[in-house]
Design a protein around this nucleic acid. Structure first.
Lengths: 219, 219
DNA sequence: ATTTATCATAATTTCGAGATTATTGTATAT
DNA sequence: ATATACAATAATCTCGAAATTATGATAAAT
């Protein structure tokens, strides 16, 4: 069995779920023990992840986890708005009932978890499952856009976005306003109002655009 | 000196300038002779290029040059319109005179070459220089958008786009209409009319959207 | 004649070591 | 005390070969 694919996914998951410190050095000779493989294999994986933006690489100076950076988060947010709006509107136009059903289902699950977190106050044990549901909802929004390229780019941006946001022990990206935000996006999408849908997607992410020099284009 | 970076650039250039056949197999053991290095180094490079979309990879079945595919070209074109419009409008808003100057210069050079090709009839000897100028013009359009992320994504999409279009001995992407198209984009950008600029960028690339199921969003 | 099994060949994947380069610490000189 | 030169250490980069897996050819069986 070729394990490089597994190792790639494993390290990628670690990178996007706070498995490493921001700015931490990633030494192949050290990581090899974690995954029972050689340093060369780890090196290849890190090289690939650097191409995707989840790892920083400098020649002759090795690999590092990208450090937190406000400007970068703004750029990634801006990209999310752009790609997610476009993908969602395209999915709406294809007008599939199946898509509406899947979106409703994804929102139902996400909503359920968010209400539990809101009621409970402490999201500690639910962070992973919430993170997966949030991801699923946003992926579903664009799932029927008809462009594998767009979906791939969005996955990439989303992964980097999450990496920037993840901090140990904190409440991550979750705020109580999310419940209304997600519901508003769902309603707008089902209503068929493209401009409204774009606006709601923008509003949902707007809090990450504080101090932005990049103005919004579609709002 | 670490040559992997050089080899990466070399192979990338070959991939985007018709250096390989569409669908051709890329065997590390064979390519190593071309670049005076080991098969492992070539393998790493191909792995990285596969992450960027310029090489197809299947586990246990090696690397291949992506084959030509109408649907893919449409997706890439759609992405170019999306990213290039957004990046250009953002550059316009930053309103730099330096940007306008650079854009005018880039257009002047491109225009010069295109008129020579148009007059001469045969673009054979000018393909490479035209290709560089065209690339430069479009990169300059978005150069002051303020988002490294957007620029990086556009570079990637553009590279894949060109790879799809390149065919040996043919006139590549060049058509006589380009001269008017590029001039129209320049004029619109300098005039400050955002909607018009978006429209002209779309029109310029519209011929690659034949048979598109993805409708345009901003036009 | 077509299918299945087995074997030989070729390609891919993984590895650890050697070569190269950066980093750190120490000593000397200004 | 600061700066420079040099040596020791640690990291990165490159490589060729061994291990694994796919591919293709040949033979046996239905």
């Amino acid at each position: 069995m070729p394990e490089e694919i597994d190792i790639y996914q494993t390290i990628k998951t670690q990178l996007t779920s706070n498995g490493f410190e921001h700015g931490a050095k990633l030494r192949a000779e050290v990581l090899r023990d974690e995954y029972n493989c050689s340093a060369s294999t780890v090196r290849e994986v890190l090289f690939r992840l650097s191409t995707v933006g989840l790892v920083d690489f400098q020649e002759q100076r090795g690999f590092r986890v990208p450090k937190r950076c406000a400007a970068k988060l703004i750029e990634l947010t801006h990209m999310r708005v752009l790609l997610e709006s476009e993908g969602t509107v395209l999915s709406m136009r294809k007008g599939g009932v199946l898509w509406e059903a899947r979106l409703t289902a994804a929102h139902h699950q996400l909503s359920h978890i968010e209400k539990r977190i809101h009621a409970h106050g402490d999201p500690s044990g639910l962070i992973e499952i919430w993170s997966n549901s949030e991801n699923d909802f946003h992926q579903t929004l664009i799932s029927d856009c008809g462009s594998e390229t767009l979906k791939q780019m969005h996955r990439r941006v989303y992964a980097q976005f999450r990496q920037q946001l993840m901090v140990a022990d904190r409440q991550f990206d979750f705020i109580s306003g999310n419940i209304q935000h997600h519901a508003a996006i769902l309603d707008a999408a089902l209503s068929g109002d493209e401009a409204l849908t774009r606006a709601k997607i923008h509003d949902h992410l707007a809090r990450h655009l504080k101090g932005d020099t990049l103005a919004s284009t579609t709002g």
